[in-house]
Amino acid sequence: MENGKVERKDELEGILQTFARQANGLIPAFHAIQNRYGYVPKECLPEVARAFNLSQADVYGVLTFYHEFRHEPAGRHVVSACRAEACQANGSATVIERIRERLGIDFGETTPDDEVTLLPTYCFGNCACGPSIAIDGKLYGRMSAERVERMLRGMGALE
């Protein structure tokens, strides 16, 4: 996933043409847009609405219902931490606390240098091997505060 501006209208048109033919294509279209741009840029919405023959309000309503869709670009790295019960039972709170403290951000925020975005996840299905953290889409089990700090350091997110 790469963050990019919606510079090429024909590219967006191409995505929309593929999905607007499907009766339930709006959510797949948002997935495709986010895959391309790293988020769903607001300036896409009028064209999305036109392609699906829906009002902009309808389209915005669908977009904002789902946690998965981002409305702003993410940082260069995305760290997702599981906040659900099974990971809590294995001490995820201390892992999450360490991430927040070292990066100085809370869930849903991006570091001021645009390096890391921290997102909550409610279950990766890795409950038997928690606490779970995903970094740029790769999942890691049995995470500890020390190990996550090492990993953040390794990817250059901490000075």
Binding site: N24, I27, P28, H31, F65, Y66, H67, E68, F69, Y122
Partner: peptide, 8 residues
């Protein structure tokens, strides 16, 4: 196959 988008 249809993919959800993060809504419990």
């Amino acid at each position: 196959l249809y993919i959800g988008a993060g809504a419990y």
